[in-house]
Write a protein that binds this DNA or RNA. Structure first.
Length: 269
DNA sequence: CTTGGGACCTGGCTGC
DNA sequence: TGCAGCCAGGTCCCAA
């Protein structure tokens, strides 16, 4: 599932193949993929535009165009951007063709991903919290964001307006590394807890980027390879396995209808 | 404003 | 073999 490290990897690996290229043709197989404008208008506006650069903000991929507009892509659960796919199967929702003979397919089994053309990306960016690896995110900002919150810390970590880019897998990993129970009330975390959580978030996200993302479910990099970050997971999706620290059996708990994996011994409520 | 529940979407897996 | 039901989870929408 593309969270921050996966989208960052996709951005990095897509960039050399499409920056400076012109969109020559768009084929939309699934019209619900395009939001905020009609498909025809979207295609008309994007065709002929040149890719100026790629950025990532939270889990959004931003393909900025030479005319100042931007193609915003969110891959949600199962979306992937694959360069020069061998076949066009039923899960391909759109194909972009470039003037350098590259094609890029938007493949998405569960069809939850979206994309749109934005004139002004500031509206979107302002809704998102700080980047976990950015200068604005530190122990003080995290402390301020958690203060007074009555929701479980797991739910708060998934709120993109608190911190941008953390999803279910990395929230579980960060809470495990910080020895914090997912149901613990966010506003009740001690100063020490918040310090541990801050360090855990930064470490978990950076490690996952270094490993090119985690290939659970459908995540693939643009050239089709998997990432390796899941090989280093300690609790995420590991129900029934022994905790790597204490050997206790890892359990699953639903927090806001999201599977939360944790060690009942290392992460006391 | 915060919180929490449901909806959306499809396919893999489990159990009867 | 069929089939019901759970599980995967990012975001939006709505109600309290």
């Amino acid at each position: 599932m593309p969270e921050l490290p996966e989208v960052e990897t996709i951005k990095n690996e897509l960039s050399p193949h499409i920056i400076g290229s012109q969109f020559t043709k768009l084929t939309i197989y699934d019209r619900t993929l395009v939001v905020k404008s009609a498909v025809e208008e979207f295609c008309r506006e994007l065709t002929g535009q040149i890719v100026a650069g790629l950025q990532r903000r939270g889990k959004y991929l931003i393909i900025s165009l030479a005319n100042g507009k931007a193609l915003i892509i969110h891959l949600r659960m199962t979306g992937a951007l694959i360069l020069n796919p061998e076949t066009i199967n039923k899960h391909v929702r759109a194909v972009f063709q470039f003037d350098n003979n590259n094609t890029m397919a938007f493949i998405d089994v569960r069809r939850l991903g979206v994309m749109w053309l934005a004139t002004d990306i500031n509206n979107l960016m302002d809704k998102l919290g700080p980047e976990p690896l950015g200068d604005e995110f530190n122990v003080n900002t995290l402390t301020r964001k958690l203060k007074g919150r009555k929701a479980p810390i797991k739910a708060v970590l998934l709120d993109q307006s608190i911190i941008a880019g953390i999803g279910n897998m990395y929230a579980d990993e960060a809470l495990f590394n910080a020895s914090i129970h997912p149901m613990k009330t966010a506003g009740n975390l001690s100063t020490k807890d918040i310090e541990k959580l801050y360090n855990a978030i930064v470490e978990v996200i950076q490690t996952a980027i270094n490993n090119k993302g985690a290939s659970v479910a459908n995540y693939k990099r643009p050239q089709g390879e998997p990432g390796t970050a899941h090989n280093y997971f300690k609790v995420a999706h590991l129900r029934g396995q022994p905790c790597p620290v204490c050997g206790e059996i890892i359990q699953r708990l639903a927090v806001r209808n999201r599977g939360s994996y944790y060690c009942p011994n290392c992460q006391r409520e």
